[in-house]
Design a protein around this nucleic acid. Structure first.
Lengths: 164, 164
DNA sequence: GTCAGTGCAAACTTTTTGCAACTAC
DNA sequence: GTAGTTGCAAAAAGTTTGCACTGAC
């Protein structure tokens, strides 16, 4: 599905959601949806805000962004993550489920896919709970920081050779 | 392992960590570690702060709590979660790995264990990444909110029977 | 015309930072 | 003695809220 096609589809889904829940179909809301579906990867409210300012198509306030993104999450068109300090969001329609590797040293976030993992999680029997979606965050060291730490360790060991 | 035993062990691990990294072994740090290992389940900084105030053993400032908890995370004695608005923490030594179910409606968080899930995640081959720990958050509806929503749906359907 | 939605600014919450005083080493 | 830590208060960062105005229905 090409990009424009996706955008059309999500607009339609959003319209249905708004109708079903008695919300108004304001141009702000569609502009926000459109912008979000132009972004690849994660973004936070502030990034989205500047992005919409710059593209000068439509100026919306931060408050509206916060309001609208809640609607989009409920319409299952956006997923919310909370890695660092500010909440990160991500479009979720027509996107491959992926997992996140977060480096504890430098904070970098990378995505990866793993079908086995996915199917096991999706097929897990949950008691008294209706699954909507899930997030798997794997914390550790990215290769860059791993190398940096190794170098440091060698230095340390040389300094205290007598310790076991 | 009983509770006191765990506390002694984590003190020892913490001491080793502090020594290894050239940090001072202040009474504040041990008091914080001790308090955290008296808490079952999740807590946020504010809860920890009040808890330490009330038990009047030791008064520490919020700033120190934030500083110390970073050390504890690095020493792998505490895990950080970010569900709601404030960061949640949890002791991690000698605790069974568990996953989290988060209700999107009421925000309640419940834990569950699943060995299959655990082993699959732990055995996942990661490229260029050294795993330290992971968090699986499952979002959806808890049984309480599920029932509430069903009731609402029935009402809605009665109101608009002519829709497919 | 009405009321949900918007923009703006102020308020609020959580976390970080600067600095003087303290203390583990 | 000295530099890492602490407490406090101020600042920063992210999010929510109150209110007057606007525009979708």
């Amino acid at each position: 599905m090409d990009n424009q096609n996706v955008k059309d589809t999500v607009r339609q889904i959003f319209t249905e959601y708004l109708n079903a829940n008695g919300h108004r179909k304001t141009p702000e809301r569609y502009a926000i949806l459109d912008t979000i579906y132009s972004i690849d990867g994660h973004f936070d409210i502030d990034t989205l805000f500047s992005l919409m300012l710059n593209q000068e198509k439509f100026r919306v306030s931060r408050a509206t962004l916060y309001n609208t993104i809640i609607l989009l999450i409920n319409a299952r068109l956006v997923i919310k993550h909370q890695f660092g300090n500010s909440s990160q969001y991500e479009k979720s329609y027509n996107c491959n489920t992926h997992h996140h590797q977060i480096c504890m040293q430098c904070g970098s976030v990378s995505e990866f896919q793993n079908n086995d993992l996915q199917s096991v999680i999706a097929n897990t029997k949950l008691s008294r709970f209706q699954l909507s979606h899930y997030s798997l965050y794997i914390y550790g060291l990215c290769s860059k920081c791993m190398r940096a730490r190794k170098r440091k360790k060698v230095t340390n060991n040389n300094n205290k050779k007598n310790e076991s």
